[in-house]
Design a binder for these strands. Sequence first.
DNA 1: GCCGTTTTCGGCCCGACTGTTTTCAGTCG
Length: 569
Amino acid sequence: MAKTLPRNAELADQLDLLADISEILAEESFKVIAYRRAAARIRETPSPVAELALAGRATDLPGIGKTIEQKVVEIVNDGEMHALTRRRERVPVGVVDFLRLPGVGPKTAARIWTELGVTTLDGLKIAAEDGRLRDLSGLGQKSEEKILKALDAGAGEQVEPRRLLGVGLPAVRRAVEELQAHPAAIAVSEAGSVRRRRETVRDLDLIATSSDAPVLIAAFCEGSWVRDVAARGPTKATVVGHDELRFDLRVVPPECYGNVLQHFSGSKDHNIALREDAQRRGLSISEYGVTVVETGEVVTHATEEELYDYLGYAFIPPELRENDGELAAARKGILPKFVELSDLRGEMHCHSTWSSDGKNSIEEMALESKRRGYTYLCLTDHSHYLRDGRMEAQWVEIDAVNTRVKPFRVLRGVEVNIRADGSLDVDEDVLAELDWVVASVHTAFERSPTERILGAIDNPHVDCIGHLTGRRILKRTGAEVDIELIVERAAEQGTALEINSQPDRLDMRDTHARLAGEAGVLIPITTDAHSITALGYGELGIGLARRAWLTKEKVLNTRSWAQIAKIRK
DNA sequence: GCCGTTTTCGGCCCGACTGTTTTCAGTCG
């Protein structure tokens, strides 16, 4: 590649900005929707869209047509999107910031700008303090106060932070359990992005049916985890926990539980596509039921299964509901059965006290894995702690532990470091003696990561690549790797690519894992545990794997060690 | 601007809430 191509995130940001500015300029609303959809699609596409656009293949992506493909090509060739440049000349940059304020949308932002001549957040603050905002028709004292309060709180500069799934999921589980135990509760379920197992979440959604909604709402608002009640009505409440997590509960009649649960599980894109499709067939979907437009009849569904069936789809697991092919597959009835936590039979990447950051002994890790129903564990302590004869000493301990935990088995492994120059920090003849070798990049993420990983994939002794990009969710983005090249090579060489279940890693990410699965790469779901409690992270990796459409067959450690030993390279 | 069980034109998800209004526009999820 001669020049650096813009990343998908940059392309998506520009299209989102184009959408915002176009909306402020009151342009055709469906154009704005199209820009946003294209941006979302590009952001979620695993391969570089700039490259696809240059090859004329970006239009293969749903939501991207000739015009937007051309806009991407412009960014590559001219360094700018002309439609965006033209509009930026018309709208002061600061006006776009107004959109992040509560209650301020494109119409209001435009009027603050054109009628008051205010073009910055600072200017807006002064205008609000002077009581000039309330002069605009449609805005009153309350709107002014709300905007001022948000500006004082520093809003407009940052949005509500996202939290890790690993934080949100246990919290929502506890809430569901506590509510479910209440006598007034009939059914309680998690919903929203937690239920879809997105890697990060904002609000935690709960849906319930009840014999006495107000009583259940009261119990929810008085829960042990509640710090503040942000809103409370007869059927709906929002509370904030001591850990700053926000919970939304909706209590609904049992007969439309399926409709409401489906609605509030999202994703937004999935629901929009579902509704568009239904509309073509004369059906109108809302959270209260499905209306047959011609007759006005409203059909409700007690379960999601009944709802999807009524609409002509096989049940779609929540993790797949991202409008990425699941609707077409469910309509054709060709959605396979996806991997589940109970399918896992062993741990393939974890650490003991032999790594300085490990918290538990080999035996403790083995016993906990055994307790979880596993039959083997690949011990993969960090290579640099196993120098100078320590690896041989570790083998002695592994052998001793194995005599005590059998038929459970601890395998000899290592997590070998891929150095900045691409070499591995363990000798080849040592690697050759091990049962399982994970190779990972831990440093210098920006120095030719793709080439270094390809080198490791090609090494005959490397069984698996650990945490592919090295990202730390909400902290660092990780190495920018050529996923298509890596997946292709891994499939050729029979090198596995792991799904690392650490809450802040979840690496490979969903879109990458889906590509790998489709290419036939074997994918172990590992915890990279440094303690016995971390061995429980597997459910996060399972959620990710399901989002990546992985079946049991595509996940390596759904097999016994005997089976793996046969197919490992 | 995209897209097709309405296929190259004419559509494009749905409802609640808020604050502002006398019937609704705009925002939000």
